[in-house]
Each structure stands twice: as structure tokens, then as C-alpha cells.
Design a protein around this nucleic acid. Sequence first.
DNA 1: CCCATTTCTTAACTTAGATCAATAAAATCA
DNA 2: TGATTTTATTGATCTAAGTTAAGAAATGGG
Lengths: 200, 200
Amino acid sequence: MAIPSPEDLEKVKEYIGRFVSFNDEQLCAFLQTMEKKRVPKGSCLMEAGQVCDYVAFINKGHFRTFCIINQEEVTYNFSFEGNFYTDYPSFLTRQPSLEYHQALVDSEVLVVSYEKMQRTYQQMPVWEKFGRLIAEFILIRIAERNRAMLFLSPEEQYLNLMKSRPKVFEKIPQHYIASYLGIQPESLSRIRKRLSESKK
Amino acid sequence: MAIPSPEDLEKVKEYIGRFVSFNDEQLCAFLQTMEKKRVPKGSCLMEAGQVCDYVAFINKGHFRTFCIINQEEVTYNFSFEGNFYTDYPSFLTRQPSLEYHQALVDSEVLVVSYEKMQRTYQQMPVWEKFGRLIAEFILIRIAERNRAMLFLSPEEQYLNLMKSRPKVFEKIPQHYIASYLGIQPESLSRIRKRLSESKK
DNA sequence: CCCATTTCTTAACTTAGATCAATAAAATCA
DNA sequence: TGATTTTATTGATCTAAGTTAAGAAATGGG
């Protein structure tokens, strides 16, 4: 663990500023709780069975969230530079996580522990508000995903994902995307073929 | 719209008490914002296209949330007596909702408008905290549903639902449950047959 | 630059759910 | 109660994704 640099913290400040207004004292109180951590390519910031004890700001790199179901990895989500990252259910309930948080490239995160986060909530109402707004923000995103999974065929979800999160296609191997869509790599391959043929 | 009775408000108080502690003044400030509304069986508390302007406490009855996709109703969720109910994405973003909130029996709700809710957040930090905790609570539930949809077959989801929300099977017609599971009524019928045969 | 590994594609076959159609069972209400 | 509507089941056929297996393409390390 190391102390974040001023440039690192500037990125966090920018992100938070999208949700709440704050003064220097308030900002410092929060930023002081952050610690910097390197995560080498392929390694996991957290593994299933552990309680997720951090909210992480991804300073550099990107991550894949996966679970192991019946001895098989199922990719649950992708998280990119400049966003916060945690297993909310585990972080909030203090129950063991089902997830692995794996760095897909050499990465760097700024983490806040559960205990420090709760203390910050208590100290300053502005962070309580930030906590509410960010929970609401994530809730909306998850609800959208939910809707997509219920309403759309894998093919429609694939097209949807290309529009809404093009970054995923720049950086993520295809078999992980297949898993994210809930299908086998072979099926995604066929969907891509079908789409490219119907385009002609 | 009518004024809620003391017995109505007692139920709300009990619910809130599971999340935060409060004194009488704080409680009153919140309960004062509630208005009582009857929703006859089959009618909708809200329809797609409207901005969802309420958080509703279901005082009596139960509801079905559905969307219309390609001229077809897709059931998204069920909500029962003694819980809060809203379209979070629409309520928070002030964008038109995609959902219909339909009473499946003669029902009664206590609603708080967006404007009153925001004012309550500003007035008393305890409600800000309640807002955060309930957003987090709902987030966890949606995340679980998400996981189920990604990881489990319709058959497994059906068994899962029977365990985790038996109420659904007491009160909800089967073709709505099929829709909730993302399959056709005929398929659910076959899954039930398969299960009852394998049990023998 | 080459070899090993990972990732992607294609093919043949299987299977679960979709679709269409008909009927049976249950609920509603006049 | 009997008639009408709603809900649930069953059968036949179709289709998209799963499975298994093989080979092609891309990537990465020495």
C-alpha cells in the first residue's frame, strides 16, 4: 500500500464532483482515507469467500468481475479506469463475496476500507449524501442491465452492448464478452457471423 | 387522496425502524409527507411514459410491474404489502418511466412525492441516511436477481423463486410468473411437469 | 523470429424453449 | 347456477443456443 499522488486524487475529485459539491476540508477528509495499491495483470484484488473490504477507485487499468459456478467461470461485469469498483452486496452486508475481481492488465487502484467509509459517512453529511447518490446511480445501471437480460435476446444484448459500452470491445477478449452475455463463445461467434452476413 | 390513519403510519414506522433510529419529531416530519391513495384491482398506479413521481408504501394489496416490449407485456417484478414501491430509475432521473405499476387486487398505497422526498432529505440527515440505506438494500436485491438471471437456467430460477419468495406463488397467476422468469407460459407449464415427474 | 499458448471460428449433433394450435380447467360474474 | 372469460396444459414442429471436437488465427514470451 502507498499514498496516492496529487494527480491520482485529482481524478477522484473530478469524479466525486459529478455527484456532490464540497469544500476543501470535506474533500481532504475523504481523500485521506484512500490508499494506493498495484494489481498485476491476471491477479485478483479480491477472491470469492473473502468479505469485500473496499471501495476501489480504478486509477489505471481495467477489471473483470467473475464468479465460479459449477467449476466454471462466469463473467459478471467489466470495470474501467476512472470509476469506483466494489462488490456492493458483500461490502454492505459484510458477508463473504461470491466474486473475483481480476485485473486484465497491470492496474492501480485507490481503496477505502469499509471501516473508514462508515466513519466518513458519520463525520460529514455531504459524504452520506454522496453515498446515497452513488448507490442510486449504480442501482439505475444494474436495473438497466436487469431489464436488458429479461427483455432482449443474446443477439440484441450484443448490439446493445456495442452501442452503450464500446470500450468493452476495445479491451476485452471475446470469450469474456460471451460469458457476460450469458452464452458460450461459440454462440457469440455465430451471432457475429449472422450479423455480418445480414449487413451485406 | 386522503390522510393516512394512525394504524397505516404505524406500519410505515415499523418498516423504517429496520433501517434507522429516529425521534418523534423526525418521524412526524416524514410521515406528514404521505398521502393515501386507493388503487382498484387491475388499474395502474402509473403507466409508461409518465415520470414516476412517488415512492409508495404498499399499505394493502400487491402489484405487478410490467413493460410493453414489441406489443407484448413483460412482467418485471412483483411488490407486496408492507414494502416500498417505486420506479427508482424514473423517480431519480426524472425521465419518463418504461413501466406500468398495476394493482393485482384492490389495493391501497401511501405515497410521497419526489419534491417532498427531496425536501425531507435536505431537512434532516437521518432521512438522507435512510435514503442511502434503502437504495443500498434495493441495489443488493437487484444485484441478486441479476446474478440469478445470468447464472441459472429458467428451471433453476423457478426453484430459486419458490424458496426465496413463496408469496409469489400464493398470489400471482402462473403466466405472470413465466413472464417474470423470461419464458413463455407453455414452457413454465412444461418445467413444472418435468419437476413433478422427477420428484416421483 | 519462432514456438507455445490463448483465443476465435467452424462443423455436426443435441436439447430446451418458442411458436402455433387445440383443449382442459378455473375463476368471474350476471 | 350457468355462461363467459381467463388461465393452464398438452402436442407437434421449429429454432437458437449448448456441446463436443477440430482446426485456424492471434498473441506473447523467450
